[in-house]
Computed example of a mutant assay.
Amino acid sequence: MMRWRWIWVTASLALAACHQPEQQAAPVVSHPPAAATSAPKAASHFEPPPDSSIPQDDFGKQIALGRQIFTDTGRYAKAYVGNTLNCENCHLDAGRLAHSAPMWGAYPMYPAYRAKNRHVNTFAERLQGCFQYSMNGKAPPLGDDVLVALEAYAYWMSKNEPIGVAPPGHGYPKLPRPTQAPDYARGEAVFKRDCALCHGDNGQGQRVADRTVFPPLWGAQSFNWGAGMERLDNASGFIKANMPLGRGNTLTDQDAWDVAYFMNAHERPQDPRFKGSVTETRKAYHDTPDSLYGVTVNGKVLGE
C-alpha cells in the first residue's frame, strides 16, 4: 500500500506538460448534442473492507494473492499477460475506488448476459475477457489459480452487498454527449497539458523498478482494440472521474471526450477477434460511433 500511496501522491502533484499542441485536422465522430455538460453526480457508495481485515487463514491467503495479482499482474499472472499493464491501471486503488469500475461493483452483478460475447457470463469468464483484451494476453483456464485468487479477492471485497443491484460508483460514469464532436487537435492539447507528464509525450507510460506505475495509453504495450477502454464513452467517463490522477472531475466534459478521442485515435494491438478484415471486424464488433476501430484518422485506417 505504501508504494501505491506514493504513486498516488506523486501523480496528484503533477503539473502540465510543456509542449504546445500541433494544429492538425482530423475526422471526428458525430454525436448528438447535449443540452449541457456536467460532472458525475456525487453519491454515497459502498465502502469495501480495509486490507488489514483480510483473514489470517487459508482463504485469506487466496484473497491476499488475488490482491497481489491485481496490483502486479505481470509478475503474478505472467503466463496470461501480453503487455505491461496491471489490473489496477484501469481499476484504481487495487480495485477499490468508486467510478473506476471497482471490483466490489462488478462481483455482485454476475452471472450476466454480455452483448460483447453474446452469452451469459460468469464472473470468472468476465475476468478471462480482461486478460484477453485489456491485458492483450490469453484467458486463464476456468479453475486456474489466478482466476480463483482474483475471484476470492473480489468476493471478499464485495461482502454485504446486495446481489444483482448496481451500487453507486460501480462502473465508469456515463457522460452526456459533448456539445462539440470529439476532436483530435483539441484532445492533443488536453493530453499535452494534463496527461503527458505522467503518461509520456508519446503515450508510452512510465515504469519504476520494472513495474508500470503510469500505463501506456496506446502502442504495443497498451490494451488492444477489443478492450472496453477503446470505446470513447467508457474512456471519457473514466478520464472525467479520475484523471489527472488525484484531480478527478477537474477536466470539463468536452475535454474528457476530446482527450479520449486523441488517445483512441492511435494504434494499439489488434482485436483478437480479427479474421483478416478490418471492415468486417468493425461491422461485427465495433459498429458504434464510440469506437474508432476501422475509422480513418489523419489519413490512416485504425486497426490496419
Rank of each mutant, 00 (worst) to 15 (best):
R231Y: 09
W257R: 08
A220W: 03
P215T: 14
P215F: 12
R273E: 08
T212F: 14
K275H: 12
F214N: 14
D271Y: 13
P168C: 14
N234A: 15
R207F: 09
D201H: 09
R207K: 12
G276Q: 09
N234L: 13
G219C: 03
F238D: 02
T179E: 11
D201N: 13
P182F: 11
Q206M: 15
T179D: 10
P176L: 14
Q204E: 15
D258Y: 11
A227I: 05
M243P: 00
A196H: 09
L232P: 02
R207T: 13
T250L: 05
M229Y: 05
P216E: 02
P216G: 00
F191S: 04
R186K: 15
G205M: 14
R247V: 07
V278Q: 01
P168Y: 13
A220S: 03
H199I: 02
E267T: 03
G237T: 09
A227F: 11
P216Q: 01
H266K: 01
A181N: 15
G248W: 12
W218I: 03
L175G: 00
H199F: 13
S222M: 05
Y261V: 00
C198G: 00
N249T: 08
G228I: 04
P216I: 00
K283E: 11
D271Q: 08
K275E: 12
G246L: 05
Q221D: 09
A256K: 07
P176R: 13
A227V: 07
N224C: 06
A265H: 00
